[in-house]
Nucleic acid binder design. Structure first.
Lengths: 139, 139
DNA sequence: CTATAATGTAACTATATCAGTTACATTATA
DNA sequence: TATAATGTAACTGATATAGTTACATTATAG
């Protein structure tokens, strides 16, 4: 299961967009219903990915790019960091003296990477802006 | 990251197919390079999913259905059991007094389920038989 | 200039999952 | 009846996640 860092990160981006500059990690934590440090940790990942900017001592944070240009895939890549960006773990060190053991990793790699690609393509189809508009429309 | 139970399960199915009836969990463990109990645990999941049959006291196991009819998705569903079959965790209990907190779970559900569906569709495109043939061709 | 308040992190904890392992009950068959 | 295999329970170590406390750093309001 992909951790909730991902959806919390989208939550954070939505709040930054909607509150125009003067939002704090404590306020966001109140909306997400968690601890401010959890928010700041995810903010740190979003900063490293170049999606937001913030500075110690200065209240608030801002989007580096418009939300229309930030897809779910951008956020996913910013906060979910599986080993080598590989979604499916393939067991290692299987027995080279067995036809299956010798070839299984290689044979599985391509179809599993393809499944991962399809998921990522789908994530790239939705922007954070889209869900923000939808939430605003519901009030 | 999706656990290696999934690829080990494919490994197990391939060995059952190739060794026609007389294979043991100890032998499979030798090929996967792990402990026989790890194999039996996954066998148990494959049995519950109706993919293989085995009986205590009786050496060997057999496929219930031909490998041509078993897709990667069937195996994935047999051995990976995320909560409610949901791939993406969505944080719960966010603040209902905030527009985002009130609507975020609902707004995210559909695009995330769609990404999961795309991954699963891709997994359904490959059968275990296909990778067995490929491994056999490499020897 | 100083007090305040926010960010950025380190460090610790509790919890859960995974994979490996030991142990043993159950069961079919040679 | 002895043997050998499956089916599981139970424990361990490793790792990831999320929550929490603590504190250094930094900008700014007064």
């Amino acid at each position: 299961m992909i951790s909730s860092r991902f959806t919390v990160a989208i939550h954070i981006l939505a709040l930054i967009e909607m509150s125009e500059g003067s939002i704090t990690s404590a306020y966001i934590a109140g909306s997400v219903n968690t601890n401010p440090v959890v928010i700041r940790r995810i903010m740190s990942l979003l900063s490293k990915a170049g999606l937001i900017e913030s500075r110690p001592g200065v209240t608030g944070m801002k989007l580096v790019r418009p939300l229309e240009s930030i897809t779910f895939l951008d956020v996913y890549r910013a906060v979910e960091v599986p080993e080598n960006d590989v979604l499916f773990a393939i067991h290692q060190n299987s027995n080279p003296q067995c036809v299956v053991g010798r070839n299984v990793q290689n044979a599985l790699e391509e179809p599993l990477l393809e499944a991962q690609r399809q998921m990522e393509l789908s994530l790239a189809n939705t922007t954070v802006a889209q869900v923000v508009r939808q939430m605003e429309s519901k009030q």
